[in-house]
């Protein structure tokens, strides 16, 4: 399958993705449970679009994206402030590290949700995606810095930990995958790369998010439910892209 046919089917683009309804309409009408399910979702989405979604979308069009950067970094500043003033309890280093990691993961989930929200609920939050994506990167970077500077401390142990501790290796992989996305998250890069290559590159967010979720699952002790839920949600959100891809393959 040429990459471009996938591109056309998946609306991951920043602005010029095709309307998903068009794709639905060209699908052959052979009875298939998956398709019926999807049709039902599309119908539900359509009804919703008439009501609340329309109102929200109209309102969103009036709200600029830039305040999100400021709002987004406030929790980080708050966490550091708490840590410095004794508000994070007896072990502020771990608390700060975990707090920043948790925020990074939550923002990643939000970023992944934007395309499915538009497809299945008609909710258009595309214009906020770049800001949220960059906030993910800011939080992961701070998370990594806390680990480097406050937690591990000894430079000799940094490499050893990255290589020897699988959950660190996986976390580091997620971080590395996010670097090219952060660098190319501006209009100039988008123009330079062209939308097709740009979208292809930004698919790295899927392995990055899965790695982030796996990283969390690997680092907890015992059998804990929260990391399982996070990873399940991430996989589900990634899977929504996959459903479409398979149909577009079937359609040739």
């Amino acid at each position: 399958m040429p990459a471009s046919s996938f591109m056309n089917a998946v609306s991951v683009g920043p602005c010029c993705a095709p309307n998903p309804e068009i794709v639905v309409s060209i699908a052959p009408t052979v009875a298939c449970p998956a398709r019926q399910f999807k049709a039902a979702i599309a119908a539900a989405g359509k009804t919703l679009r008439m009501g609340i979604t329309e109102t929200i979308n109209t309102a969103m069009r009036r709200i600029p994206a830039w305040p999100l950067y400021i709002l987004g970094v406030l929790p980080a500043i708050w966490l550091v402030w708490l840590g410095a003033t004794g508000g994070l309890g007896a072990e502020p280093i771990k608390a700060l590290e975990q707090g920043l990691g948790k925020k990074a993961l939550q923002l990643l989930v939000l970023v992944l949700a934007i395309t499915p929200l538009r497809r299945f609920a008609g909710l258009n939050l595309l214009k906020f995606r770049r800001a949220i994506g960059l906030l993910v990167f800011i939080y992961v970077t701070l998370h990594l810095l806390v680990w480097l500077v406050l937690d591990v401390q000894a430079p000799g142990r940094i490499w050893a930990d990255i290589l020897k501790r699988p959950y660190i290796t996986v976390g580091m992989t997620a971080f590395l995958l996010l670097i090219p996305l952060a660098i190319t998250s501006n209009n100039r890069s988008l123009r330079k790369l062209g939308p097709v290559r740009w979208r292809k590159l930004h698919k790295l967010v899927f392995p990055a998010a899965i790695s982030g979720g796996v990283h969390y699952l690997m680092l907890v002790k015992g059998w804990q439910i929260k990391p399982v839920i996070y990873l399940a949600v991430i996989l589900l959100l990634v899977a929504t892209r996959f459903i479409k891809r398979r149909r577009s393959v079937a359609n040739g």
Binding site: A84, A90, E91, P92, L96, Q153, A154, A160, R165, L219
Partner: peptide, 19 residues
């Protein structure tokens, strides 16, 4: 298997507690 036991951090040392 997931972390080194060579050092430890004593609780209560604040944000810049040394290992």
């Amino acid at each position: 298997p997931r972390w080194s036991q060579a050092t430890e951090r004593k609780i209560g040392g604040g944000l810049f507690a040394a290992r």
